[in-house]
Nucleic acid binder design. Structure first.
Ligand SMILES: [Mn+2]
Ligand SMILES: [Mn+2]
Ligand SMILES: [Zn+2]
Ligand SMILES: [Zn+2]
Lengths: 141, 141
DNA sequence: GTTATAATTAGAATTATTCTAATTATTGAT
DNA sequence: ATCAATAATTAGAATAATTCTAATTATAAC
């Protein structure tokens, strides 16, 4: 319920927004703090509900606008699985996702540098990749 | 323009549909043959256009219905990238996808058994995965 | 052939997301 | 502080991919 950004997170937000010529607004701050606050990969709808605890007048359009800005600034990752609504993740280090088909839970799987190298080895000569998405589906015992 | 299934493909289709209690119809056969005919990961709209060369009266709803059946029968893979329209792929062996951000082309990257093993190693204990999606974005020189 | 069931079809409905146009907030001069 | 310019937010309309509905057509079993 208490969505206040830590000083270091606020600084990071200010800096990243400023670099793109964007302002720090309370809407962007609350959306960012909600995403940082619970690492459960919420959808825009869920983010709307959580931000409204602190900012009851925020609109869904603004949540989408804020998310676009945060993704643009590389403060947040947009995660798409199959055709379900986009989810948002504050984990900026390269990682894969695991979606439990029973509980629906989405878990980050961190990748070691060596594992990333192995993934890149999948690419034949002439294929230059800037990013990848790796998602596992299964069950979590 | 000539979408006729090879005898072996027709047999595969018949068998897979029958196993799920589904009939072989000309709509399903043409949709399947279009997907087999050009390995470019077409969308439902593109499949509609191609099938209509042979079957001018087929509807988009039927294309979606046929695709659902074919995916259900594991004759075709549904490939989702970000939030763009689903694409369909006849390559049933485990593979990754590369999407060229310049040309839009989507290429299959086959995976060796050893590479699949390495991917599975990403999963911590207790995570049991039935399938994975791996997509690279980048440019193709 | 009749009847039951399955598949197809056109068009309506749904859902996530984006767009539009109006309002409000912020900035940076005066 | 006032003003003007610009940016951000907002409600609601629009869009686009997909799914649903209800009617029609095709197929299979008797
Ligand atoms: Mn959403
Ligand atoms: Mn499509
Ligand atoms: Zn994540
Ligand atoms: Zn493929």
């Amino acid at each position: 319920m208490n969505f206040k950004l830590k000083a270091s997170d606020k600084e990071k937000l200010d800096k990243a927004l400023a670099k793109k010529g964007l302002r720090t607004t309370k809407q962007r701050s609350f959306v960012y703090s909600v995403i940082l606050g619970k690492r459960d990969h919420p959808t825009a709808d869920e983010i709307l509900l959580r931000v409204r605890n602190s900012l009851p007048s925020i609109s869904l359009a603004t949540v989408y606008n804020c998310l676009e800005s945060l993704v643009e600034c590389a403060l947040v990752r947009q995660v798409n699985m199959d055709r379900s609504p986009s989810r948002f993740c504050p984990n900026l280090s390269p990682h894969a996702h695991f979606k439990c088909t029973k509980s629906g839970k989405i878990v980050d799987l961190s990748l070691k540098e060596s594992q990333i190298k192995l993934l890149k080895k999948i690419l034949p000569k002439g294929f230059v990749s800037s990013n990848f998405d790796l998602t596992f589906n299964g069950t979590l015992r």
